[in-house]
């Protein structure tokens, strides 16, 4: 398993994701700088959380146009699993790899706490470590996590089982309590909560460890 973590200016969860990936695979991922134009040989790509480019213009807008993203988009379209967490989810929406957009939280607050999520679809490679209908606890930490798409898109996402995770108690105003969505092919997944922050009891939980173990077994 050769995983890659893309590092943007002002990514701040890149090392956390690297630790989670290494714990799950036993192999440290490759850290790839956003300014590179080519990816090393890789079979899993993670876009980490943070505040790339200071959230200028729109969250994830600048990062989605950075040189490495052209290579990431090509890989995603060729079927390589791509995971975007928090700012990574925003970046994936800005590239168009995932539908919709993440707006300012409806309550205007920066929300930083652990939330419960319901696993709506455990058939995807990203959620195979869980039971369908299982509840998991992941932390959220964001100001712009309010998932928005038009009703037709939302209906399609739900009809196709692409809403993989849903908030039990919606912290940000997301349409239909959506916390994580898959692309049509099922190899691209974006979520606002942070599974990499709960990979050890010392960090407050193990639900994230199950997440990464499941993902990487499925992707291997």
């Amino acid at each position: 398993m050769k995983a890659s973590v893309i590092v943007f200016p002002a990514s701040n969860c890149d090392r956390d994701v690297a630790v989670a990936l290494e714990q799950a695979t036993g192999q440290a991922p490759q850290m790839v700088w956003h300014g590179d134009s080519a990816l090393p040989d890789t079979d899993f790509i993670a876009l980490p959380g943070g505040f790339s480019y200071g959230d200028y213009l729109r969250c994830g807008a600048m990062a989605s146009k950075s040189p490495i993203m052209r290579a990431v988009i090509d890989k995603a379209n060729a079927g390589t699993p791509v995971l975007g967490i928090c700012n990574g989810f925003q970046i994936l929406c800005e590239t168009g790899l995932l539908p919709g957009a993440l707006l300012r939280n409806a309550n205007l607050n920066f929300v930083c706490r652990t939330v419960s999520l319901r696993v709506e679809n455990n058939q995807s490679i990203f959620t195979r470590g869980f039971e369908a209908g299982q509840y998991v606890d992941f932390p959220v930490a964001h100001h712009d996590g309010n998932f928005f798409a038009d009703d037709a898109t939302l209906d399609k996402l739900e009809g196709d089982g692409r809403v993989a995770l849903r908030y039990v108690d919606n912290p940000n105003g997301s349409a239909r309590n959506i916390a994580g969505v898959l692309n049509d092919a099922g190899n691209v997944f974006g979520l606002m909560p942070h599974p990499e922050r709960v990979i050890s009891p010392l960090l407050g939980g193990l639900d994230g460890a199950a997440f990464f173990k499941g993902v990487l077994e499925a992707a291997a």
């Binding site: 213009l57 729109r58 807008a61 146009k65 929406c93 800005e94 539908p99 919709g100 957009a101 707006l103 928005f148 798409a149």
Partner: peptide, 9 residues
């Protein structure tokens, strides 16, 4: 189209 606006929203 390419950067300044996001046509989704």
């Amino acid at each position: 189209q390419k950067l300044l606006a996001n046509p989704v929203m």
